[in-house]
Design a protein around this nucleic acid. Structure first.
Lengths: 336, 336
DNA sequence: TAAAATAATGAAAGCCTTTACATGGTCGTA
DNA sequence: TACGACCATGTAAAGGCTTTCATTATTTTA
């Protein structure tokens, strides 16, 4: 079953079939209708590989993420896919597992499949690999950490807006010793969140006891362990802010293990607003990162670049995403 | 940059380059080395589309899931991908969003890309779509619900083992009014879990008050609402078993909302053992479904089928997966 | 030592589309 | 009426790889 069979049945050439399928204007309505009927009758669909080979375009966008197991990503992936389907684009998902070797494999996969563009949602990316894309004029969009290269778009997150809102919320509740559990400091996104928190608390002249700062790993166990260290240090925080929700959940566990209550003894704030955070005990107050908006912005950047004939000459889109504070039950008045 | 350039540089024909890349035995070690050096020097990698077009094989396995946002799937996807990478296969992930229309699109995508095999991890699948695959001799593997077709493999879950273990655990703790919150009854997997629970409790002559049974939706909110209905019904269960962990988490929330404690007033058991269940408050006792094992079994079934020349003639592998009970803190002695 | 078997390699066809270019027909205009 | 413009369609090359078959060189066998 191939385009030839369709052409034969519709009594036209393969070129006309191809043109019909691709919506080229150069086909008369009657012919087009005949071709469509033939396609229907034969239940034909074109071979994607041959298409990509013939045209050089693949209708594929790559989506590189660190780890699908991290609850931050599935929603992002889903939103990205949903909008892609709407535009007739397909999505090739690749996990790097935070491993530079694996990242290389991902990049190669994208290149080999002749993707039309790539959304890179991991924070660390080798410049040499970016080279590989830009040399081939493949549009890129980054989350948060775009290199200053023409044709490369970026979706930025206004970290300070979200974190300021969280800190202000805590201050209003009377907190003045706010601990912070960071993500792994080798991740740019984690460093950003840390830096923004420090700035925000410094601005408000809060206690900056270094014992209040611990490094986690953006997973539950890291948050748990970090919180234990903070509690053991004797720093006595009245509230904790975590670099992501998983960390916050771990911290809540450690607080409960120590016989303390959230929020009566210690308030907890997370970051990301993963689905689950609404259902923890107590439901988590957290900074919501609009993942659907991020996915849409990323997709649109690639889509526009794809439409313009010389993507690498256009400057690349910049989109700023504004996180918002979602107040639930894990924060309450400070009790000293 | 194509195979011709490599051939030229290595002073061989393109056929030899192709053979070298594919590990064909018919290349002398010296020639192979020369070719490899040329590939290295030119930083060449072959066009996947051309490869698939030329050979008819794509080195692609499809993986159809319902919803990447459901925490059951990410781990499955990850494990599947990991083992695929190990075997040099790639994975094309497709979400159906529980939507038959979308399922059709997924199937078409797979067909168009000439996948070497498809793992179908959703429980509902139109027979006509299966036809599409088997007509083209594309190996399939199902989770749980394989149609009786030659060449179709299946990874089965021994539901009764897991649920019996959970029920026995509760009985030993003195429970005799065990509620059950099912998944959506239109899903075969949910019906299986329900059926197995009913059999298990009937065998043990437990209270079979229909008020103890409610339908959820396999999400947190459904578990929450179902639990509220059970509590409102006056059936006074001493324990609840949920069809999956999200449902259990929702149920725990509803129990807390009602001013009751887990496990002191009501014990809760989940199903799946998603990562998060270890970190709920209290940590959830649940039936663990070994997702890595499922993924491996599924992959292997496809892989073996791919290796054998006539996949549809071999009977299809059957693999039984045994869930196990993980006892954490959400279950305790019944207090009436 | 000649014939046969084996091994390594090359030439070229084939996979299925897309698309540049060619062709023939229709229309409008001078 | 004739010529160019334009439209719909067809022809055939191109895209990058795999693979069959043919060819040559080498080894084995009798």
């Amino acid at each position: 079953m191939n385009i030839k069979a369709v052409a034969k049945r519709a009594k036209v050439s393969t070129a006309t079939v191809s043109r019909t399928m691709n919506g080229s204007a150069k086909v008369s309505p009657e012919t087009a209708e005949r071709v469509r009927q033939a396609i229907e009758a034969l239940n034909f669909y074109p071979d994607t590989n041959a298409r990509a080979l013939g045209s050089g375009r693949s209708n594929l966008f790559g989506l590189i993420i660190s780890d699908i197991t991290n609850p931050f990503f599935p929603e992002l992936v889903k939103s990205f896919e949903d909008i892609a389907v709407l535009h007739g684009q397909e999505v090739l998902i690749a996990n790097t597992n935070y491993d530079p070797e694996r990242m290389k494999i991902c990049v190669r996969r994208m290149l080999q499949r002749k993707v039309d563009g790539v959304a890179i949602m991991t924070s660390e990316m080798d410049d040499r690999l970016i080279e590989d894309f830009s040399r081939r004029h493949i549009p890129l969009v980054f989350l948060d950490t775009a290199p200053p290269v023409p044709g490369v778009s970026c979706v930025r997150i206004d970290y300070s807006a979200g974190i300021d809102a969280a800190v202000n919320h805590l201050i209003k509740l009377g907190h003045n010793r706010i601990a912070f559990i960071s993500g792994p400091m080798r991740l740019a996104s984690a460093r950003m969140r840390y830096k923004t928190f420090m700035e925000s608390t410094a601005r408000d002249h809060l206690d900056d006891n270094p014992k209040l700062i611990e490094e986690g790993n953006h997973r539950v166990d890291g948050g748990h362990d970090a919180m234990q260290r903070i509690l053991a240090s004797g720093a006595r925080p009245t509230a904790v802010m975590a670099s992501n929700d998983l960390t916050a959940i771990g911290a809540m566990g450690a607080i409960a293990d120590a016989g303390l209550r959230v929020p009566e003894d210690i308030s907890v704030v997370g970051y990301d607003d993963i689905q689950l955070s609404a259902f923890t005990m107590p439901p988590l107050t957290t900074v919501s990162l609009p993942r659907a908006e991020i996915a849409n912005a990323a997709f649109n950047a690639l889509w526009h670049a794809k439409q313009s004939e010389e993507p690498t000459l256009v400057p690349g889109e910049q989109h700023m995403v504004l996180p918002t504070l979602v107040i639930r039950k894990s924060t309450g008045h400070a009790t000293q």
